[in-house]
Design a protein around this nucleic acid. Structure first.
Length: 423
RNA sequence: GUGGGUGUAGUUCAACUGGCAGAGCACCGGAUUGUGGUUCCGGGCGUUGUGGGUUCGAUCCCCAUCACCCACCCCA
C-alpha cells in the first residue's frame, strides 16, 4: 500500500525549507520593529468560535470548515483563519488589562475544505498581524504599512493595494437598504445566486462574475456614499496617513471582506500574474469582533497573508531565495585506517559549526571526489596512506584545484583555514 | 460543490488510425591501481496513476476512481 498526501496539502521539502526560513525571518524582523510580538494558538478551536465570529452564513463556516467531534462529543474545527483565535486568546488571557494596546503577530497553518487550484490549498500557511485596542485610523495605516513594506521589502513590484471602507454596523445597514432598493426592480434578472444574496447579503451581488449581474451592479450605489460622518472621517484619515507613509493605494469600492466581522477599513494586496487567486493578503478593521465573541467592545485592525501566493509572486518576478547550504568541506578517505584517523577530527570540525560532509559508502577516490564536486563543497579534505604516516590531511580547494597539507595535531590551523576560506 | 484539461523512468517529454514502451537531462560505474568538473564508453523488465471493460492484442478506445492543472465559487 502506497500512502499519499491528503488532497490540497503538500510537503515542504528540504530544498525549499531555506526559502521558508528566509521569508519568515524577514517577516519577524519587520513586525518586531513595529513592536509586535508573536502569539501561538492551537490549530483547532471550538467550532462555535468560528461560527460566531465569521458568521453562520459565511462560506467558510457553511462548507469550508474541517469539523470534528472529540471523544466526549465536543465540536471542534481546524482553524480556517487566524483572527478569531487571536481574539479568543486576547479575551481569555485578559490582555486588555494593564495595557490599552496589544500588538500581536502569528504564523502557521490554516485549513479550509476548498477545491485546490493554483495558489489555493486545504492546508495553507498564513502570516498575520493584529492591533487591538484603538479605533485611531493611524493604526489602520500602520497595519497596511507593515504589509506593504513586507511585500515590497522582499522585492515584489507588480502588486497594488486596494482600499475601501465598509462602514460601521449603522451605515452598513443603511447601505444594504439602499442596495435592496436599487436591485429590487431587477431582481428577476439576477442570477439565482444573487437572488439569494439579495436578502442575505446584497453587497455580494457587487462582485458577482455573471455578466448580467455585473451590468446591473455597475450603477448600484456604493458604500462610500453611505458612510456616516464618523466613518467618512475615519476613512479619509486612513488615506491621509497612508499618504504620509508614501504607500500607494487605489480605492476599490467593491472590496467586500468575506468574513462578517469587518467594519470600516477593508483592503487587499493584489498581485497580477499568478492566476485567479491573486490576493496576496487581505485585512481590515474589525471593531465588532471582540464584543461578538464575548469580550468587551474593543476595536481592532489586522491583516493576514498567504505564503503560498507569496512564493508564486516571488517566483513570477524571479526573485531568488536561498537554497540549501553547500558543505564547507567534504571528507575523503582512502582505506579503513584513514577513516579511523579522521573520524574524531570530523566531530571536532562539526562541533565548531563547520558544515562537513562525509560519505563513507563510496569506495574509490575518484567517486568520492566526484561526490564532493557534486555537493558543491568549497574544500575537499583528503586522507590516504601518505597523510596517515604524517598524521595530516590534504586540503584541496575544489574551485582552484590548489591543495596544501595540514597537520591534524593540532588541528587549529586547518580549522582556521576552512573557516576563513584562506586557501 | 460545478465544469474543462492532464496523468508514461528520479525529471522533462516521445511512442502514426490499437501491434515488441523510447530519448534528453539527472543518477551510477568505467577509460592501467592518489585527484573532481570537459570528453568517450557502459548501465533502464517503468505495476504507462489505480481498478474494471471492449479486443487476438490497450499507453492509445469505454467506464469508474484518485491526483494534479485551469476556470466557477470563495478567498490567503
Amino acid at each position: 500500500m502506497q500512502y499519499s498526501i491528503p488532497r490540497g496539502t503538500y510537503d515542504i521539502l528540504p530544498e525549499d525549507s531555506p526559502k521558508w526560513h528566509r521569508v519568515i525571518a524577514e517577516f519577524r524582523k519587520l513586525v518586531e520593529a513595529y513592536g509586535y510580538a508573536e502569539i501561538v494558538t492551537p490549530i483547532f478551536e471550538q467550532a462555535a468560535l468560528f461560527e460566531r465570529s465569521s458568521g453562520e452564513s459565511s462560506d467558510v463556516v457553511k462548507k469550508e470548515m474541517y469539523r470534528f467531534t472529540d471523544r466526549k462529543g465536543r465540536e471542534f474545527a481546524l482553524r480556517p483563519e487566524g483572527t478569531a483565535p487571536v481574539a479568543r486568546s486576547y479575551i481569555e488571557n485578559r490582555m486588555d488589562i494593564g495595557s490599552s494596546y496589544t500588538k500581536l503577530y502569528y504564523l502557521g497553518p490554516m485549513f479550509r475544505y476548498d477545491r485546490p487550484q493554483a495558489g489555493r490549498y486545504r492546508q495553507f500557511y498564513q502570516y498575520g498581524v493584529e492591533f487591538i485596542g484603538s479605533n485611531n485610523p493611524y493604526y489602520d495605516a500602520e497595519i497596511i504599512a507593515i504589509l506593504w513594506n513586507y511585500l515590497t521589502g522582499l522585492g515584489l513590484k507588480k502588486l497594488h493595494l486596494e482600499l475601501n471602507s465598509v462602514g460601521c454596523s449603522v451605515c452598513a445597514k443603511e447601505y444594504d437598504k439602499a442596495l435592496r432598493d436599487y436591485f429590487q426592480p431587477y431582481l428577476n434578472q439576477l442570477c439565482p445566486d444573487c437572488q439569494e444574496r439579495f436578502e442575505r447579503k446584497p453587497r455580494r451581488i457587487l462582485d458577482c462574475k455573471v455578466k448580467e449581474c455585473g451590468d446591473i451592479a455597475k450603477k448600484a450605489p456604493i458604500q462610500l456614499d453611505y458612510l456616516d460622518e464618523p466613518c467618512r472621517e475615519h476613512f479619509s484619515e486612513v488615506q491621509h496617513y497612508l499618504d504620509l507613509m508614501k504607500i500607494p493605494f487605489i480605492i476599490n469600492p467593491r472590496i467586500v471582506r468575506g468574513l462578517d466581522y469587518y467594519t470600516n477599513t477593508a483592503f487587499e494586496v493584489i498581485y497580477e500574474g499568478i492566476g485567479a487567486q491573486n490576493a496576496l493578503a487581505g485585512g481590515g478593521r474589525y471593531n465588532g469582533l471582540l464584543n461578538q465573541i464575548g469580550g468587551k467592545n474593543i476595536p481592532a485592525v489586522g491583516f493576514a497573508g498567504g505564503f503560498e501566493r507569496l512564493f508564486l509572486s516571488l517566483n513570477e518576478e524571479k526573485i531568488t531565495l536561498p537554497g540549501p547550504p553547500f558543505p564547507e568541506v567534504f571528507i575523503i578517505t582512502i582505506g579503513r585506517e584513514a577513516q579511523e584517523l579522521i573520524i574524531p577530527y570530523l566531530n571536532i570540525i562539526r562541533v565548531k559549526g563547520i558544515y562537513a560532509e562525509y560519505e563513507p559508502d563510496r569506495a574509490s577516490l575518484k567517486a568520492q571526489l566526484k561526490a564532493a564536486n557534486n555537493s558543491k563543497a568549497y574544500y575537499a579534505l583528503l586522507i590516504g596512506e601518505e597523510e596517515i604516516k604524517q598524521k595530516s590531511a590534504l586540503l584541496k580547494n575544489l574551485e582552484s584545484g590548489e591543495q596544501k597539507l595540514y597537520s591534524l595535531e593540532p588541528i587549529s590551523d586547518l580549522i582556521k583555514t576552512i573557516q576563513n576560506k584562506e586557501l
